[in-house]
């Protein structure tokens, strides 16, 4: 039983990890919390639903379309909401307002399209569960875990080993200096938004499979935020560790306390965590100025 919970928790945690890394990437480069991330997930998942799944396409096509849609939405957001204020070096409050405005915009558009109805992705798997000895694991959980992990490993490789990744790290370290060194920082910021959008799209589809598709699905992004706070704001490794930890703890709490109180318990854990170790697990606390 307890191992069963652990497995479920890992699957949930891997989705949270996708959300948290998408969020942490933007935080890393532009140093602001991107509150449009949740609505990007919803919008991308709905785009994939209406474009392909509703016509009977499989999981792979759905994920691909969601990733592309997420990237497109994020690029649009970067251009409409953040380009000017980035170039003007505006204070971080403008980024904040821009991001919640974009979030409101996407959610509003989705609501205009679908009302407040619930949608279900078609069944992607013929066998809903797999038996491993004594354990019953849902196929979608295994798929989510595997795909999330593969996506994160690719991301880690790109950031650590490629020229683009090095450029990205340089821009996140100091945008202006990187620009002087010949890195096109606007291009790199666009790239960051694209990656974050792809992650958002995949996470959106997974959340849609796990729960259902509805216009305020994006509010589950809170889990990603909590994971980043636990892991240490802006740290990608921290975000992944925090997310997996949160997924496991939440699943345990869920089985003990039920759905309402577990939300409160996770929140309380985050508060205590902030009190005891505000810099997060990874310990990279981004200070404001200086």
């Amino acid at each position: 039983m307890s191992l069963q919970i652990l497995l479920n928790g890992l699957a949930t945690g891997s989705i949270y990890a996708l959300i948290a890394t998408g969020f942490a990437l933007i935080f890393n480069v532009l140093k602001f919390s991107n509150f449009s991330h949740g609505a990007t997930m919803t919008a991308a998942a709905f785009a994939a639903y209406f474009l392909v799944s509703a016509n009977g396409a499989g999981l792979a096509a759905t994920l691909a379309v969601a990733g592309i849609a997420g990237a497109a939405i994020a690029l649009f957001g970067e251009f409409v909401g953040f380009r000017r204020i980035t170039l003007n070096h505006s204070s971080s409050t403008y980024f904040f307002v821009s991001s919640i405005t974009l979030g409101t915009l996407y959610e509003g558009l989705v609501t205009v399209k679908v009302g407040s109805n619930f949608y279900n992705f078609p069944r992607f798997f013929t066998n809903p569960t797999i038996n491993l000895g004594d354990f019953v694991i849902s196929t979608s959980d295994i798929m989510m875990f595997t795909i999330s992990m593969v996506a994160l490993i690719i991301l880690a490789y790109v950031i650590q080993k490629t020229r683009l990744g090095r450029a990205l790290r340089a821009v996140s370290f100091d945008r202006d200096t990187a620009q002087l060194m010949g890195i096109d920082s606007t291009r790199i910021i666009q790239l960051t938004f694209v990656i974050s959008g792809v992650l958002a799209g995949i996470a959106g589809v997974f959340l849609g499979i796990k729960y259902t598709l509805y216009p305020t699905l994006g509010s589950l992004v809170v889990k990603g935020f909590i994971a980043s706070v636990i892991g240490g704001l802006g740290s990608l490794t921290g975000a992944v560790i925090g997310a997996v930890l949160l997924g496991v703890v939440e699943t345990i709490l869920l089985s003990v306390l039920g759905s309402g109180y577990s939300t409160i318990a996770t929140f309380a854990i985050m508060l205590v965590f902030l009190l005891l170790r505000p810099q997060g697990i990874a310990g990279s606390n981004v200070q404001e100025k200086a």
């Binding site: 919390s33 971080s92 809170v222 935020f225 909590i226 706070v229 929140f267 985050m270 505000p278």
Partner: peptide, 21 residues
């Protein structure tokens, strides 16, 4: 006591927790 980003993240979680409660 922390960077100002935290207040928006934490209060967002708080809002969800209160709604659940």
């Amino acid at each position: 006591r922390l960077r100002r980003d935290y207040i928006s993240l934490v209060t967002l979680g708080f809002g969800e927790a209160i709604a659940a409660l």
